[in-house]
């Protein structure tokens, strides 16, 4: 009986154990670097539980004061998503390789869009609060940029999957590129676009609930106040409100997206 030769990689399961060792090494290195003290967690866990207990007794009387900021949160998400979408449509068309055939242009704008997408929501919020001041303006601008980054990518990837036949047909009849966009691209992608916009809206509602923590409007402002005043019973009410609104918007948006298909 002749067994085939095992490579060293196979014999000692190098890939598996190698990854495991690298993972463990990184974990130990990170642990030492951050000086994590897990005993502190065990020792102080009662404090965490005490805080949690306070949150288990929500201050229902504060509930009416949550409604207006919560609505402002949704309004911010709505306007931010809309502005982001309006900016994203031309941007996505420029980045789509089947519309703009110049690789240098698509490559360059994609690098810019990728850079925008690396910035998290709260970071943008901190910047915009510094620029335009405290209030929902900063929140709307944050969400505009945030959703612009997300939607642009979803859109240009979507445009690139479409059927190129109609595109070529319009160009062949001597049509302009603007005609191509209007009559060949948008009709093919509109239902998927709406689905992506709804999806982005869901994410924006989630994001907008915390932007106020840094002064960018919405319910996050109340969240910050209650936490800094150690009113965890009020924090609990706000978190419950966020849970309800986010899950409701998710549900509605999911329903709408399923109907679209």
């Amino acid at each position: 009986m002749k067994l085939p030769k095992q490579t060293i990689v196979q014999r000692f399961h190098i890939r598996f154990f190698g990854s495991l060792i690298i993972l463990l090494g990184l974990l130990i290195a990170s642990n030492n670097f951050l000086k994590l003290d897990f005993s502190a967690l065990v020792q102080n866990f009662d404090q965490f539980l005490a805080l949690f207990k306070e949150m288990m007794h929500p201050d229902w009387k504060s509930a009416p004061f949550v409604v207006q900021p919560m609505l402002e949160t949704i309004q911010m998400a709505l306007i931010g998503t809309t502005l982001g979408t309006l900016l994203a449509i031309p941007a996505a068309i420029v980045a789509a390789r089947n519309v703009v055939t110049n690789k240098w242009i698509t490559g360059f704008v994609r690098i810019i869009f990728n850079m925008i997408r690396t910035l998290p929501d709260l970071l943008l919020a901190a910047l915009f609060v510094a620029i335009v001041g405290i209030g929902p303006y900063a929140g709307v601008l944050t969400l505009t940029i945030f959703s612009f980054g997300m939607i642009t990518k979803l859109f240009y990837e979507c445009i690139e999957t479409i059927d190129n036949g109609p595109l070529e047909a319009i160009l062949a009849t001597g049509g302009k590129r603007s005609a191509m966009v209007m009559f060949a691209i948008l009709p093919q992608v509109s239902s998927r676009f709406i689905s992506y916009i709804l999806y982005t809206f869901e994410i924006n509602v989630r994001a907008s609930t915390v932007l106020g923590y840094l002064g960018a409007g919405g319910i996050g402002q109340q969240l910050q106040t209650s936490l800094s005043q150690f009113r965890y019973d009020q924090t609990a009410v706000i978190i419950l409100a966020i849970l309800i609104v986010v899950l409701a918007i998710d549900g509605l948006s999911n329903f709408a997206r399923e109907r679209l298909q």
Partner: peptide
């Protein structure tokens, strides 16, 4: 296991 794989002519695929 090797013997069984030899029976079905797949010993060369064992790993």
């Amino acid at each position: 296991a090797y013997k069984a794989l030899e029976r079905v002519n797949l010993l060369d695929k064992v790993y």
